[in-house]
Design a binder for these strands. Structure first.
Lengths: 318, 318
DNA sequence: GGCCATCGATGCGCAATCCGTATTAGTTAT
DNA sequence: ATAACTAATACGGATTGCGCATCGATGGCC
């Protein structure tokens, strides 16, 4: 098929004016080429699109049908060009975000909301991933960006911290320590702990265990469960205590109380992405997260003891 | 915009194969023109559609989006070509049929049904017209074909008879004449008549009045109404008698009975259309009506007295 | 580590296409 | 009958597009 977009545009102009001379003027060409292109189009279609006398031009039934189609097609092309350019600018497209449970309770919702309001034409596909699976998903390209408390960062992955919050203690409501507004971690030395399994959320696990060891005791771990909600739930049932990110205190459960902790370590949340990822939406998402991080930077620096595991990994993106 | 369908086809081939050489082979061209056309396309779009190394080609996000659009557009063009050709063949399109009330009771339903089953892609737009308005609608192009009992036929209109049926009498149920299965028109000489106004349905009006005059009496017209249903209704109420096309007897109304009439004149129904009308659907509709007319030809010739007003107008179409 | 194969980009010549000017043929209005 | 107008055709010049040949770069292989 040798039909050309030019022929469609010529045809539409002629269909609109029903006059070869005026249509040619509108197209900024002379009349003979228009006649020839229309004739060629009719030849290729094998269909007479116009009934012409030397005095007037009118459309055939097939002509008006083709006119409607041609307009649709030309508009589709124009729209395709615009949306493709928007895609390259990252103003529309698909962004696959892998997030961890702890991010879902803190930084994920406002960040996604902010980004979504700035880029409404981008399809943000959120999927929860286990912390240990995130890196692989990013490297293999199954996700464009992750939101998590980072653990090990393989080469090729970039990281941008955007949020930090202290650990806090969660205790059964009737527990003696629940009387005071703030407790010291050392006071939990003899309590049974409920924690995340190291294999599922190594960073958080390490943070909790580390906090205890720093205070000179090895926590007695009674239970491990990879859902933070379950931890709080089991604490509420009186099965033990735990240290969880402060944002978990949004969870209101009758039998559980949250208490801030002196010398609490910070839980950091940040974006992780593959340096090689060229999804144009990612750039804007990072910008968005960066300005979001600026707003929350006081939080990041409010932690009382020095650097987090990835304090040196605050990298810039290409 | 200078984007060409060829560029879309080249682009799609390359997107499918992700290999310049193989895509070129599939397109039956050599590799260099493909490289150049893709480069030109990217130049015109201002967007990189492929990431190429000298070892492998892959699509960018914008490239895959454009691919989806390009496929849609090419398919839209192919489909437009096919449907336009079908339109010219008259296999799809719009056919505006103007019909009269009397046709609606007899020939219209089976004819439309037959045509619709043969040409399901044609949009048959039915609209009722008053008999006196039909010719104007056809000449001005507001309708493609009319189904009616023809009256005057201006030059430029063609006619094809497809159906004929006798007049019959409609009487109040309690009327003495309702006792016999067949009556003579003369027996109605002293009855009050309910008829169509001459201005609305001149042909039918003339047929009824003419039938009476033929039997030597001038009917006493008590009422005129341009709805046949209303005529039957008023007869049922005992306000008079009438002569109506036999197909009206399908109308079952408690107080009205239909009786066949000796020496009844025939009501003819046929197609009327402008000779200059070039709607391709019309041709098939006429063919369809012609074969329908063949089936009903016995009816047409069963009338007992000679020619109808348009017996000489059984024309062929161009 | 050097060589070879593969692949996309580029240079160049030729052919096809397309446009514009000039003209023709046909139709309507005066 | 003539003038005015419109679409189609003829022809020359310019642009575009293709194929062949080649280049440059990359990855595999011995």
């Amino acid at each position: 098929m040798a039909i050309d977009f030019r022929q469609l545009r010529y045809f539409i102009a002629l269909a609109d004016t029903l006059h070869f001379g005026r249509a040619a003027a509108r197209l900024h060409i002379s009349q003979p080429p228009l006649s020839r292109q229309i004739a060629a189009l009719e030849e290729e279609l094998g269909v007479a699109l116009f009934k012409r006398t030397s005095r007037q031009v009118e459309m055939t039934a097939a002509g008006s049908h083709f006119h409607a189609q041609a307009v649709r097609i030309v508009e589709a092309l124009n729209s395709a060009v615009r949306s493709t350019q928007a895609t390259e600018r990252g103003e529309r497209g698909v962004l696959r975000v892998g997030f961890t449970m702890s991010a879902a309770w803190s930084v994920l919702p406002p960040l996604i909301k902010t980004y979504g309001s700035g880029y409404p034409d981008t399809d943000v596909q959120l999927s929860e991933v286990l912390p240990r699976e995130l890196n692989d998903a990013l490297i293999s390209g199954k996700a464009d960006v992750g939101i998590a408390f980072p653990w090990q960062r393989p080469p090729g992955l970039e990281y941008l911290p955007i949020h930090a919050e202290p650990l806090c203690a969660v205790l059964p409501a009737g527990h003696p320590l629940a009387q005071t507004p703030e407790i010291a971690i050392g006071e939990l030395a003899n309590e049974p702990f409920i924690t995340f399994p190291a294999a599922t959320a190594p960073a958080l696990h390490e943070l909790v265990i580390g906090s205890c060891r720093e205070q000179g005791f090895e926590p007695h771990i009674r239970l491990e469960t990879h859902l933070q909600q379950t931890i709080v739930n089991l604490v509420a049932e009186g099965l033990g205590v735990s240290l969880v990110p402060q944002s978990m205190s949004k969870m209101q459960l009758p039998g559980a109380v949250f208490r801030s902790v002196a010398d609490a370590r910070m839980v950091e949340q940040g974006l992780i992405w593959a340096a090689s990822n060229d999804n144009p939406c990612l750039k804007h998402f990072l910008d968005c997260a960066r300005s979001y991080g600026e707003l929350n930077r006081p939080d990041i620096h409010r932690r009382k003891r020095g650097k987090t595991r990835f304090a040196n990994s605050r990298t810039s993106h290409p």
